[in-house]
């Protein structure tokens, strides 16, 4: 002991070190626990990612990797020249509109539902909003497809009963995307719940203090409540943005024929899917991989941008 002390070890440190020593069994356990997800990451994330990057520089029209031919940046050049690429970009950006529309309205609804209203009304409203999340996006889209059907759909039956002209919600370019946005709006009740819990967590005395300070209800909401729930808003904004870049199912269900009226159902995700299915011989995996990489880079840029800008507005205090 004395020697150790001389060597600069205090008694405490000595014992602390001894305590921190873990058993051999524990070490193996820890190693195994860490290694399983790591193998999973290698096998299902890192390897496919690497392969995609590699394939994007080749010409490949089947699942047989021996058939691939190196082609350099040809796929990327070809991609930007595709006639449908422009449509896909425009449609994907159009669909991105759903993010601000949904988030703002969901926040508004959540705020409304957090007010002291009739309890039964609140429960029913929450149920109505949440059911679409439970039954899933495809089912919701199918139901809406029937509601918006151009000949016998609920809306058009109503319109013709009122003596108005029928509208091709799913068959005209003008109405296609708005219809998609409406459907998307209905299938995102989960955010209302997230916002509701975030709003309920805002310290009531802050609102009271603002009321005494002379702030109006609106002022309290924007100056006190919103900053308090800003981390939640950022989280949902990120998730929704990333999901919106990858959306294709709703458009596909109501389009029926794949591309929709005047290519309005073509999004970047759908374009990628199409390259590996219908157009596998003309376009193929190489081009799809190139598109995947481009889409990935765009999503990363958007996420980083949102994150950077948000630092100014989001308060974690």
């Amino acid at each position: 002991m004395k020697l150790l002390a001389k060597a600069g070890f205090s008694k405490q440190i000595f014992f602390k070190k001894k305590e921190a020593v873990v058993g051999k069994g524990e070490k193996i356990q820890g190693f195994l626990m860490a290694v399983i997800p790591f193998i999973g990451f290698l096998a299902f994330t890192a390897f496919p990612l690497g392969l995609t990057i590699f394939v994007s520089f080749t010409d490949l029209h089947s699942y047989d990797l021996t058939t691939l031919q190196w082609c350099g940046f040809d796929n990327y050049i070809k991609l930007f020249g595709l006639p449908m690429f422009k449509d896909a970009v425009v449609n994907t950006l159009y669909f991105l509109l759903s993010v601000p529309i949904n988030l703002v309205s969901q926040l508004f609804i959540a705020n409304l539902l957090n007010k002291p209203l009739n309890k039964t009304f609140k429960k029913v409203a929450r149920l109505i909003l949440y059911i679409p999340t439970i039954i899933g996006g495809v089912a919701v889209a199918l139901i809406w497809n029937w509601i918006l059907e151009p000949n016998y759909g609920v809306f058009n039956s109503l319109l013709s009963a009122l003596g108005l002209e029928k509208i091709g919600f799913t068959t005209t370019k003008e109405w296609f995307m708005p219809s998609v946005l409406i459907i998307k709006w209905w299938s995102a009740g989960l955010n209302v719940l997230i916002f509701q819990s975030a709003l309920a967590n805002v310290d009531n005395s802050l609102k009271e203090a603002a009321r005494i300070d002379g702030a109006s209800e609106r002022r309290i909401f924007f100056s006190v409540v919103i900053p308090q729930i800003s981390p939640m808003i950022l989280y949902t904004l990120m998730i929704e943005c990333i999901a919106a870049f990858q959306e294709m199912s709703v458009m596909q269900i109501i389009a029926g024929n794949g591309v929709g009226p005047s290519n309005s159902a073509v999004t970047l995700s759908y374009l990628m899917y199409r390259m590996t299915n219908e157009n596998i011989y003309t376009e193929g995996f190489g081009l799809a991989s190139a598109l995947g990489i481009v889409l990935g880079i765009v999503v990363i840029i958007v996420s980083v941008t949102i994150n950077t800008i948000s630092k100014k507005f989001v308060s974690y205090d």
Binding site: D203, S205, A209, I212, D213, G214, P227
Partner: peptide, 25 residues
């Protein structure tokens, strides 16, 4: 004017803005 037990300061504002909030609005 009221002072609360948990102070109820606006966490996202600086001290200056906390004090000035009532005057600003």
């Amino acid at each position: 004017a009221m002072v609360f037990q948990n102070y109820a300061l606006y966490p996202h504002m600086t001290i200056y803005n906390n004090i000035a909030f009532g005057l600003k609005i």
